[in-house]
């Protein structure tokens, strides 16, 4: 069993800060790409997360008649909570906030709660466009979730363990991303899915006035937008021990390698997400079940054969 130290409860703060850093870089990268595209000074892009935070903190909240207030609130705050719970099991080099023996399953369980949070955020305001967005998310989740789950089992299978530190340690020499590329690609698509980002952003689409985001303003909107970037970041951070060799690397300490790899991946996810048209939910359902699912099942079969032969 590889040495990881379960650190004290106070270390949840640095773990959360590191996740926050990755999320802010993702938001900045997105705004910088927009600024470059529009030919504006990229510095205005770089400070976008800060400016947006200031703007939304100053803005009052907004409530709609006969809103389902408690459920709406749970949905809005939930994304951020889910993102932080996901990274609880990620080892930053040799220290980990929560060294669960079933860390991979934990991540899976938390990513399913996002279904509820996004749906509740859309259901809460008692508004037609939000409601349509909420149901769009469920339709989309039906398509990405199963392939994502199978993609998560591939590294666990190769490592023979569900403990995240074991999975990271099993990649001495060769990253899982290299020899199980299908699982890695499907995992990344799943991350875009639960972060409602890029090609899987239709639940917040402009065609339904922002969908799940249509009625929220002020701090509520800030929490939802930040939660989205935090989920994208959490997906990138979790990919490091799962597919990208964990904290292994020359010179730098382990935790810094995890951070560097996560930053590179999150910027790549932002860039690729921008370059693709939306995968419209009604078509994506068929794609998920008839293309992604068999592809990732074959990937798991290949991994299983490598393990036993």
């Amino acid at each position: 069993m590889p040495e990881v130290v379960t650190v004290g409860a106070a270390w949840a703060v640095p773990a959360a800060l590191l996740l926050g850093l990755v999320a802010v870089v993702a938001a900045s990268a997105d705004a910088v790409m927009v600024a470059r595209r529009d030919g504006v000074d990229v510095r205005t892009g770089a400070i976008a997360p800060l400016a947006e935070t200031a703007r939304l903190l100053r803005q009052p909240r907004r409530v709609t008649p006969a809103a389902d207030a408690p459920l709406w609130r749970v949905g809005r705050g939930g994304l951020l909570v889910a993102a932080l719970l996901m990274v609880a099991v990620v080892p930053w080099g040799s220290w980990v906030p929560a060294d669960l023996p079933v860390g991979v399953v934990w991540f899976n369980a938390v990513d399913v709660t996002v279904w509820a949070f996004v749906w509740l955020a859309g259901w809460g305001p008692n508004a037609a466009f939000s409601l349509v967005g909420a149901y769009r998310f469920l339709a989309q989740a039906l398509a990405y979730e199963l392939p994502l789950m199978f993609a998560l089992t591939a590294p666990a299978l190769a490592a023979g363990s569900l403990r995240v530190a074991d999975v990271a340690a099993a990649q001495q020499g060769l990253w899982f991303a290299v020899w199980m590329p299908v699982a890695f690609a499907v995992y990344c698509l799943g991350v875009l899915g639960f972060a409602v980002w890029g090609p899987l952003a239709p639940p917040t689409g402009g065609d339904i006035a922002g969908g799940v985001l249509a009625e929220v303003s002020g701090p509520d909107r800030l929490l939802l937008l930040a939660g989205r970037y935090a989920l994208l970041a959490a997906g990138a951070v979790f990919a490091v021990p799962l597919f990208l060799g964990g904290g292994a690397g020359p010179l730098l300490p382990g935790w810094l390698w995890v951070l560097v790899k996560a930053l590179v991946l999150v910027v790549a996810l932002v860039a690729v997400g921008r370059r693709l048209p939306a995968l419209r939910p009604d078509r994506f359902l068929e794609l998920g079940w008839m293309v992604l699912l068999p592809a990732v099942l074959l990937q798991v079969l290949v991994v299983a054969l490598v393990v036993v032969l």
Binding site: R55, A209, G210, L213, A214, E215, R221
Partner: peptide, 8 residues
């Protein structure tokens, strides 16, 4: 902005 809630 896509909706008044998101607009200044």
């Amino acid at each position: 902005a896509s909706s008044p809630a998101g607009a200044d």
